[in-house]
Simulated assay, not measured.
Amino acid sequence: MSAHRNPAAHTLDLGYSFCPNDTFIFHALQAGLVPSPLPVREVLSDVQTLNDWAGTSRLPLTKISYRAAFEVLDSYALLRSGGALGRGVGPLVVAREELGDLNGKRVASPGRLTTAELLLRLAWPDAVPVRMRFDEVMPAVERGEYQGEGIDAGLIIHESRFTYAQRGLVRVRDMGEWWDTETGLPLPLGAILVRRDLPLGVQRGLQEAVRASIDHAWAHPQAARDYIRQHALELDDAVMQAHIDLYVNEFSRDVGELGERAVHELHRRALALGVVPPTAQPLFVPG
């Protein structure tokens, strides 16, 4: 049954970002074009806000960073579908000029709970993150300051990885390449979480609904174009498509054994760094 065929059914809030990969993935599900155990209602916000909301279990189904997910595993389980993992898809460190060691440098960060900042801390433990909204990072790097304090470099995510060169910035490090060199595994970036207080059958059904929404998007790539354009920060069609092609892949449809290993490895390293709490819960929705 399509998600919106029964108006009396309980509606589930689904949180995700304005980014083209998210709007591409969830267009069919929020529009009721694929079967779902419950109809869903879109709640779009920036990544940092979604990360913060997860800390209070505000949304029953939500896209957040894997870094933030590791904070809330007692309340949420990871879906195997809908996330962002891959190779060469990590956040970039950019600067006004070439830099080497970032230890001791002030680096603009899109937030404490982002995977980008976790990777920065893993690679350069003594770098100094300066937190701000993700769309403020590149302007801060261009100016070399934020709120009167100096900025040496910045962590950019989302569409910014396709546009930084146009703003005269240079790439210092691709954190996806760093992770690949370190582990040989794909990099987990964004996860879809479902609250553990929902019945297990509903959790599994939502996982299948997200997978079906991805399949629908791949089968009908033009169907979501206006929806994606409506929310994208970068309105150029080529940039939007490059973003989708980079972040929506087979790991999005199902993390698979390799993706699961990657998630567990990132979680292990975050635990070793002492920045996330331990949990006795399984990471993913039980099969």
Rank of each mutant, 00 (worst) to 15 (best):
T114E: 15
R67Q: 13
H243M: 11
T114D: 13
A95E: 07
R41T: 14
R269G: 06
H27Y: 15
L233D: 09
E136M: 07
V94I: 15
V34E: 10
V239S: 06
S2M: 14
E159T: 15
L85V: 02
P37W: 10
H27F: 15
A31D: 12
R133D: 11
L189F: 04
R131Y: 13
Y146R: 02
G144W: 12
P278Q: 04
H27N: 07
L119Q: 07
V137R: 01
R195E: 06
A69L: 10
P188Q: 07
L233E: 11
G184I: 05
E98I: 02
E250Q: 14
I244W: 11
S213G: 05
D13P: 03
L189Q: 05
P188M: 07
A270H: 06
L38Y: 12
A232N: 02
L50T: 10
A8G: 04
Y16P: 06
T11A: 12
F162C: 05
P125C: 04
V107G: 04
L29H: 05
S57W: 00
R195V: 06
I157T: 15
G82L: 10
L169I: 04
S17E: 12
R112I: 14
P60V: 13
H4M: 07
G55P: 02
L92R: 03
L12H: 02
V72W: 09
P110C: 07
R41Q: 15
G88E: 10
N103P: 06
V43S: 11
D237C: 01
Y66V: 10
E97N: 00
F284P: 00
D236H: 09
A272E: 15
F24G: 00
D46R: 00
G184T: 03
H243L: 10
A68W: 09
D226L: 08
A95N: 03
L78Y: 14
D245G: 05
H27D: 14
R143E: 14
A272R: 13
N21S: 13
P60F: 10
C19I: 09
V239P: 05
L122Y: 02
P39I: 13
R195G: 03
S213H: 10
A153S: 05
I151R: 01
G144S: 04
D13V: 05
C19H: 14
L258T: 14
D180C: 00
G184L: 05
V141P: 05
L200C: 03
Q230D: 08
R87V: 14
I192L: 15
A69P: 08
A54I: 01
R106L: 05
P91Y: 08
G55H: 10
V94C: 01
N249I: 13
G32W: 14
I25A: 09
S36I: 13
A108C: 07
W178P: 09
L92G: 01
W53P: 00
I228C: 01
S252H: 11
V248A: 12
H10V: 11
L85G: 01
G256P: 12
V210K: 03
L258Y: 02
I156F: 09
M175I: 08
A140N: 03
V255F: 13
A3K: 04
P277M: 06
P91D: 05
E149G: 02
Q241I: 12
G259L: 13
D180F: 12
V263W: 08
A153G: 05
R171L: 13
D101S: 08
R173L: 15
A68T: 08
P129H: 04
R143F: 03
L122W: 03
L59D: 11
A54M: 05
